[in-house]
Computed example of a mutant assay.
Amino acid sequence: MDEIRWQERLLTLKDGSEIFALHGKHHHNEGWDRPTLVLLHEALGHIDMWKDFPQLLADKTGLDLFVYERRGYGRSSPITLPRPDDYLEQEGRDWLEAVLDAAGLDRAVLVGHSDGGSIALVGAACMPDRVDAIITEAAHIRIDPLTTAGILEAAELYNTTDLPKKLARYHGERTDLLFRAWNETWLRERFQPLDLSGWLNDIRCPALIIQGENDQYGETAQVTDIVSGIGDKAEALFIPQCGHVPHLQAKEITLQAMAGFIESLEL
């Protein structure tokens, strides 16, 4: 397999927002009509927080890979607070397609972690002709009691430990804003509770729905309800002795599962 070549890209969307991304391309894919793996990060995510997983996944599958930082993160345009209650739906319905357009990506396999997984679900529902498949890790379709408890615990750690310093290695001066954008939005009283289940019936593509058995931010029912809502093309994978971040906490199992799923699609 030939070596993947990585290119930094700064995309300008129609509204003027800038999105920073890394685009990895295999020489053997030039001229092929194959989908690109599009990685969607978590609520406190950053390209660098994926570690070496994008490289490993691209090598293992032979597909090109595109990983970007949503508005507010990394080197992309900033955001302001308060974040809207339906920000996950906005990202999947509106902004994801805008990013794919700007990047020139006609076909995609969406790989989303946590918030990114939820965004992948909405994106697949909205772009059935563009999304060949989705893989989610720790996706949410609602805020359950375990979610709330995990976020409250994270807030305590943020206020009493060196967690801000650790996050600042990635987010710099945006650290407090991004933590509040996650923490406050998920804990606030909402006029309409988060519920992404209505999107699931519109997903037509194969889906692999992954969660660690010890995920501190989501009940197992999140996975079973997502699979049930999508139907026969969806399958669940629970990874033992794994928490909220399967691609780091159970890297080899997650890599093999994702690669095997993608290979089965015969893209």
Rank of each mutant, 00 (worst) to 15 (best):
I4K: 03
I4T: 09
R5S: 05
W6C: 00
Q7F: 12
L10M: 13
K14F: 03
D15S: 06
E18L: 14
E18P: 09
L22T: 05
H23T: 02
P35S: 11
H46D: 08
H46C: 01
D48H: 10
K51E: 15
D52P: 05
P54L: 02
Q55C: 00
L57P: 02
T61D: 13
T61S: 14
L65M: 01
L65G: 03
R71K: 15
G72F: 10
G74D: 12
P78L: 01
I79D: 10
T80I: 12
L81F: 04
R83E: 06
R83Y: 08
D86A: 13
Y87E: 11
Y87A: 10
L88A: 11
Q90A: 02
Q90D: 08
G92H: 10
W95R: 14
A98C: 04
L100W: 01
A102S: 13
A103W: 08
G112S: 02
S118K: 01
A120W: 07
A120R: 06
V122C: 05
A125P: 03
C126S: 11
C126H: 03
M127W: 00
I134M: 05
I134C: 01
A139Y: 03
H140W: 11
I143K: 11
D144V: 10
P145C: 07
T147Y: 06
T147D: 01
T148I: 11
T148M: 07
T148S: 05
A149F: 09
E153Q: 15
E153C: 10
L157C: 14
T161C: 13
L167C: 07
Y170Q: 03
Y170C: 04
E173Y: 06
R174M: 05
R174D: 04
T175A: 03
L177Y: 06
R180L: 11
R180V: 11
A181L: 07
W182P: 10
N183F: 14
E184L: 10
T185C: 09
F191A: 15
Q192L: 15
L194D: 10
L194M: 15
D195A: 08
S197F: 05
W199R: 05
W199Y: 15
N201F: 07
N201K: 15
R204F: 00
C205V: 08
P206S: 10
L208H: 06
I210T: 04
E213K: 14
Y217P: 02
Y217N: 04
G218I: 00
G218A: 06
T220Y: 00
Q222F: 08
V223E: 02
D225I: 09
S228K: 12
G229F: 04
G229E: 03
A234S: 07
A236P: 02
F238K: 02
I239K: 04
I239F: 09
G243H: 03
P246V: 06
L248I: 15
A250K: 12
A250E: 12
E252N: 13
L255E: 04
L255F: 08
G260C: 08
I262V: 15
E263W: 13
S264L: 09
S264Y: 05
L265M: 14
E266I: 12
